[in-house]
């Protein structure tokens, strides 16, 4: 059973279909990437999971049960467009938002002190939000998102607005939360962080889920049979029926070549053929990066639509 499932969710706005029968499956205690170009429908789906809007049809299951109003307490949501009450003091603000997530003031205070200590920002408590820098505000916002220890965390572009040091800190916190048992939905354009963090993804394009599965599996499926070969020879040429050479590059003591092998050949057959001609130093398959997967999938699915 999945921790969170959406089943054939449809959402129609006045003049466009925002979600066209989208189903996603998020396993428990997993970091799940929700990917897609701008305007694909990610935010709408996230809002439906947060019960900010309701789907026209289809359902959302949390732990196998349809979402209830109280379930908002189990969810922590960091929207892409961050915002806090500017005139409110940091401490009051954090407590206020935690209370709205169903925590008692007393518990919220304990948790708040814990997080403030952790981030070394205990002395901010009495400052007004508008006195803080943008990066500081982001930290506060992150704390308000996780303070009530949500089972499901929804982070929309969490790294935007963070400098590299703080982004790294945030990444660490996300991993820690996952270790502690949280399930995390992670929506981003930053494919590098997807490869680093996500185990499963769904890619939404033009209101439809066009690609989903484990990151490793997807990269395997989308592989182009491209290998990197290093040989200790002076020349490297294509071999008909076995491999094409995409490019070659001179390296100290030999050549590095990128080759594309015939789809019906196994790796061993190729190596056999190579061994007979060259002295092999290295032989390695190149899997497509998530960046490539993303671009290719979006391009393909857009072509079909047109």
């Amino acid at each position: 059973m999945y921790f969170l499932e959406t089943k054939n969710v449809i959402k129609q706005y006045a003049d466009h279909l925002a979600l066209n029968s989208v189903s996603i499956c998020v396993p428990e205690n997993n970091i799940f990437g929700l990917l897609g170009p701008n305007g694909a429908g990610k935010t709408t789906l996230i809002r439906i999971i947060n019960q900010i809007t309701a789907p026209d049809s289809g359902e959302v299951l949390l732990n196998g049960n349809p979402l209830k109003q109280e379930d908002v307490h189990k969810i922590g949501y960091l929207p892409e467009e961050r915002g806090l009450y500017k005139k409110m003091k940091v401490g009051e603000q954090v407590l206020y938002l935690a209370q709205l997530k169903g925590m008692s003031k007393k518990d919220a205070k304990i948790r708040m002190n814990h997080w403030f200590d952790k981030f070394g920002i205990s002395d901010w408590s009495n400052k007004k939000v508008e006195e803080l820098s943008k990066g500081m505000q982001q930290k506060i916002q992150f704390i308000t998102t996780v303070l009530h220890e949500p089972k499901l965390l929804i982070l929309d572009e969490p790294f935007s607005g963070f400098d590299p040091v703080n982004a790294e800190l945030l990444k660490k916190e996300i991993m820690e939360l996952k270790e502690a048992g949280a399930t995390i939905i992670f929506s981003t354009h930053n494919m590098g962080s997807v490869e680093d963090l996500c185990e499963n993804i769904t890619l939404i394009n033009r209101s439809k889920a066009v690609l989903q599965g484990r990151v490793d599996d997807i990269r395997q499926q989308m592989k182009k049979h491209i290998f990197c070969v290093r040989v200790a020879n002076e020349t490297f040429i294509p071999k008909d029926g076995v491999y094409d050479v995409i490019n070659t590059k001179r390296i100290p003591g030999g050549i590095e070549a990128t080759i594309k092998i015939g789809a019906n050949l196994s790796n061993n057959e190729v190596i056999k053929s190579l061994v007979s001609d060259y002295t092999i130093i290295a032989f390695e398959e190149i899997l497509p990066s998530m960046q490539e997967v993303f671009i290719e999938t979006v391009k393909d699915s857009s072509l079909i639509e047109i």
Binding site: N50, L84, Y85, K86, Q141
Partner: peptide, 16 residues
């Protein structure tokens, strides 16, 4: 103000 602050999205994820 809540709208321009963008806090409203956080708010409605907690309350109706």
């Amino acid at each position: 103000q809540e709208k321009t602050n963008r806090i409203v999205e956080v708010m409605v994820s907690s309350v109706k």
